[in-house]
Simulated scan of single mutants.
Amino acid sequence: MKTTSSRFGVIGKGAVLPLLFIVFISVPEKCNARYWNLPPLPATHEYGNILINRTSEKNNMKPVVFSHWSHRLKYTCGVCHLELEFDFKTNGTEITEEDNLAGNYCGACHNGKIAFGHTSENCSKCHSGTLTSGKEKFATISRKLPWAPFDNRIDWADALSQSKISPRTYLEVPPADQKSIDFRNHLELTAVSDQVPPAFFPHDIHSQWLDCGNCHPTIFNVKKRTVTHYPMKDLLEEKFCGVCHYKVAFPMNDCARCHPGMKNPW
């Protein structure tokens, strides 16, 4: 048999492919985020900030900037996205100034009692038209909270579990009692490819921020439990997990947060 020399020693020609295969499968799974067209990550203080511009510019006003991180300090996600009926999709809710003044949507808190009200001197606080609002405030707050490798560089789940933050879970309507549900077991979602470790979904962490009705049945059909039903391409179209984990909750660049068998490149 003809042999060839390599840095692995002298090997037979017929042994090259088996050796390469052995080397390939013995390497730990790496995060393959570079193979996906993930959205670019903004500055840490801008992550999760959105511009609400359904009618602002039409009415000669700058778009409203909404900072998820600043509101997350005081309220869980379910307060806005369930009790106040904000759509998860940016500009998906028909918010009007009349609604706000009547105590709906933003006006439920921004009434001059809970938070600054809808008065002329406060217009620029929301209608800034830029995602960079609050940079100085963010720098002060973020230093006090647990670190994370992506998004705001804040581990919000740890911040909550360590009582670094104490967000309210409702304004007037208490969420459904979920204490009777055992959330200790994480849901395992097997991948299509054998080369991709399974993802694990922790209901317990999500239930601290959201109500079951936020996800089921509109976003997730509870009868479908594999990644076959939730392909990565759909997540990148802001479907399923991508509804939140695209530009608001920690991004999909952080592969190992959901696929613990993977190793992030950082």
Rank of each mutant, 00 (worst) to 15 (best):
K74W: 00
T190S: 06
T119L: 03
S67L: 11
N37R: 12
I95Q: 09
G213T: 10
E94S: 13
N264G: 11
L20C: 12
P198R: 00
W266D: 09
V79L: 11
M1T: 09
E98L: 10
K223L: 12
I141M: 13
F200H: 14
N100Y: 05
I95T: 11
D99K: 14
D204F: 10
R225F: 03
P260H: 10
S6L: 02
R184F: 03
S133L: 13
D155R: 02
I50D: 07
Y230P: 05
F24E: 08
P39D: 09
I22M: 10
H259G: 05
N264C: 08
S207I: 02
E188Q: 15
L131P: 08
H71D: 00
R7N: 13
V10K: 10
G134R: 06
Q195C: 03
E136Y: 03
F138W: 11
A191T: 05
C241E: 12
G48I: 01
L73K: 03
A15H: 10
H45A: 07
C244Y: 04
K179E: 11
H45M: 01
A115F: 00
R168E: 13
M1W: 00
N32A: 07
I141Y: 07
K263T: 15
P198W: 07
N100K: 08
T132F: 02
D182H: 05
P146A: 01
L235G: 13
N49L: 00
V79S: 08
I11A: 03
F116R: 10
S142K: 15
A33P: 01
P40M: 07
C106G: 06
T190I: 05
G112A: 06
R54W: 04
D234E: 15
K13L: 15
K113W: 00
R225D: 02
S6A: 05
N214H: 11
P28T: 01
N122C: 06
Y47K: 06
F138P: 01
R34W: 12
T96E: 07
T76Y: 00
T218V: 09
G117H: 04
I11Y: 06
K62D: 01
F201P: 00
E94R: 09
E172A: 12
R7I: 14
I141C: 01
Q208I: 03
E98S: 04
N111A: 06
D234P: 08
G12Q: 14
C212H: 04
K263N: 15
S166V: 04
T4F: 10
T119W: 04
G92I: 11
H203Y: 14
E57S: 14
S26Y: 06
I205Q: 10
K179H: 09
Y75C: 07
R54L: 12
Q162V: 00
T228N: 10
H206S: 03
K89W: 07
K179N: 14
A176Y: 02
N53W: 01
C109H: 11
A102H: 06
S5K: 15
L189R: 05
T3W: 08
C80N: 08
P251Y: 06
F66C: 02
V23A: 13
I154V: 15
K13H: 13
T76N: 12
P260V: 04
V65E: 14
G112S: 00
H229V: 01
C31L: 02
C77Y: 11
F88R: 01
G107V: 09
L82D: 13
I52F: 14
V23E: 03
E188L: 09
E238Q: 15
C106F: 10
P174K: 00
E98M: 06
